[in-house]
Design a protein around this nucleic acid. Structure first.
Lengths: 187, 187
DNA sequence: TACATAACGAACAATATGTTTTATAATAAA
DNA sequence: TTTATTATAAAACATATTGTTCGTTATGTA
């Protein structure tokens, strides 16, 4: 990829992120992004079709990165015992979040965080589904698998949302404990 | 309230709802709402400051109604035994949803459902918090109360989201069972 | 009936959108 | 280094949306 393209793309993402810290997504204009990134109007439209398109691409980059790292984590460490596998992935994710890779926390705590959280949940859903398939563990057979997968990813995302709302007073380890406490009894 | 105002307000809500069934919230223009409601431009702005304002008012009406009915439900039936109180409220809510009061399901299943679900969750959070306070039951003391409240309301909303995504194949009773299965073990 | 007020409709400035064109500058490949 | 390629800039453009204003008409209320 052309160095110029990389720079422009990065500048747009950066400006978009800065704007999101102070303004609602809906109220951010393409013009503001252009001004913030200090680029020409036509340049923006050479990169992204619309503001929604920009949002989608940003989500792809952000969560693609964090989810891939989670997948690698399970691969690198090989197979865990049935009881530990899913926990580790969540703790790993929480630590990643706390490190604030790519200012992901800024986006998850902005006024328009819903958009990002929803995307995050969809990514998580895939991850957990794979985990379930890979380890044909004995689990609660009262509940449909897709309900369970949805419940786990949903609960995780809602917990992150709560964590952020409470100004991240808790450590990843604490959160991991809480999460185990509400998920393990039902598996 | 003047009958004219009532009619106009209803026409705007109706038109807005119809538009939401086919278009994303972001891409709906005030002009379209005006045309759909068949009212004058200045009339719209006499009722709502912005499109966001309209959204907020719609949420207030919708969820105010359903949540109040849930609160009444707990009052009318008096106090339940410690074990049954929260369940009943959720089942009641699910039945209300299935009855599709005010086409609430249309809004919860539209492309912009996130907005409504988030508002729904906030309302639920209040409801559950009150439930917890009213019945100083013996509960899991390993978890902070606000974490637990958030987990319950979050899980419920995520379940509804899943239910809708799966085209509402399950009955309220089934959902209530699933929900009990994932919540009761942790209380 | 008479008063109050809601709705209408037209016009308005200001702003945002997405496209097009031409010129310039940076990059990659030879 | 030279050349061909390609990204960017800048300006102009038609179009659309927004939110406001104001005089008129219609409707509801007391």
């Amino acid at each position: 990829m052309d160095r110029r393209q990389q720079k422009t793309r990065a500048a747009i993402f950066k400006a978009f992120g800065v704007l999101l810290e102070h303004k609602n997504y809906n109220n951010i204009t393409v013009q503001e992004i252009i001004d913030g990134a200090n680029i020409g109007r036509s340049t923006f439209y050479a990169h992204f079709e619309t503001k929604d398109d920009l949002l989608k691409e940003l989500c792809k980059e952000l969560f693609g990165h964090i989810i891939n790292s989670a997948i690698d984590c399970t691969h690198t460490h090989g197979l865990y015992s049935d009881n530990n596998a899913p926990k580790s992935v969540f703790c790993h994710l929480l630590q990643h979040l706390e490190e604030n890779d790519n200012n992901i926390l800024g986006l998850l705590s902005c006024e328009s965080s819903d958009i990002f959280l929803r995307y995050f949940k969809d990514s998580l859903n895939e991850l957990i589904k794979i985990q379930f398939v890979n380890q044909d563990r004995h689990r609660n057979t009262m509940l449909p698998e897709d309900f369970l997968v949805n419940h786990i990813s949903g609960s995780f995302v809602e917990m992150v949302l709560w964590w952020i709302k409470e100004h991240m007073k808790h450590s990843p380890t604490e959160l991991d404990q809480y999460f185990r406490a509400v998920i393990e009894p039902i598996l």
